[in-house]
């Protein structure tokens, strides 16, 4: 009797296991797993290298007799340009220095900020890439002073990879309308210029 009961229990367990297996198989059949395989994804080198070429190409004075322009030295780094000392004698006198901004990286470079470097001891007003300090205007423009082209460089401007942009660092006397306004002495200023910051995207 006891043996029969044991046999029966065993039978029930087997039947139950069988049922569970059937349910599992049926459930598994009603599922599909879909695969999306990406063999390789390569990120190429990403380089960011933009700024001024550190040698000015051309110096353009407002008149041929203005030796001051070639005598004055400018300091150029990748991100800044400034004139060490300038002494401009008369109204409309100007010195222009041609510069190259080059993007040697493979990312687009966007000008994110243009910050003025004020000459020592001067009070200045700044508007983007134009700064005026006591009758001397500093600017970074598309063309040299006196060319008639007043296009400035601006934040948001983009230099594409491998491309260059030619700009001019202009320093000129402004705000002197006639001889009576003209200062008795040359206008001297030291270390005026700009810093340009770039961001990549």
């Amino acid at each position: 009797m006891r043996r029969t009961s044991h046999k029966l229990s065993l039978m029930f367990i087997l039947i139950l296991l069988g049922l569970i297996s059937i349910v599992s198989v049926v459930y598994a059949v009603l599922q599909d797993r879909l695969y999306i395989n990406v063999k390789t994804m390569t990120q190429s080198e990403l380089t960011f290298d933009v700024g001024f070429d550190t040698t000015p190409l051309t110096v353009v004075p407002s008149n041929a007799n203005l030796d001051e322009c070639s005598n004055s030295q400018i300091t150029i780094t990748k991100t800044s340009v400034k004139i060490n000392q300038i002494s401009l004698p008369t109204k409309n006198a100007a010195c222009s220095y041609q510069l190259i901004i080059k993007n040697n990286g493979n990312m687009n470079a966007k000008i994110s900020a243009i910050t003025s470097i004020k000459p020592e001891g001067e009070t200045c007003t700044t508007n983007g890439s134009v700064m005026t300090c006591n009758h001397i205007e500093y600017s970074i423009k598309e063309s040299y002073a006196g060319s008639g082209d007043n296009t400035t460089i601006n934040t948001g401007d983009i230099i594409q990879p491998g491309k260059s942009r030619t700009v001019w660092f202009n320093i000129k006397v402004v705000g002197i309308s006639d001889n009576s306004d003209e200062p008795e002495n040359d206008i001297n200023q030291v270390d005026g210029g700009f810093t340009i910051t770039y961001s990549g995207y």
Binding site: I36, N37, V38, K39, T40, M41, T42, Q43, S44, E45, L46, N106, M107, N108, P161, G200, Y201
Partner: peptide, 9 residues
């Protein structure tokens, strides 16, 4: 998907 390459943002 076969080999893929991207280089810039």
């Amino acid at each position: 998907i076969e080999d893929t390459e991207m280089s810039k943002p």
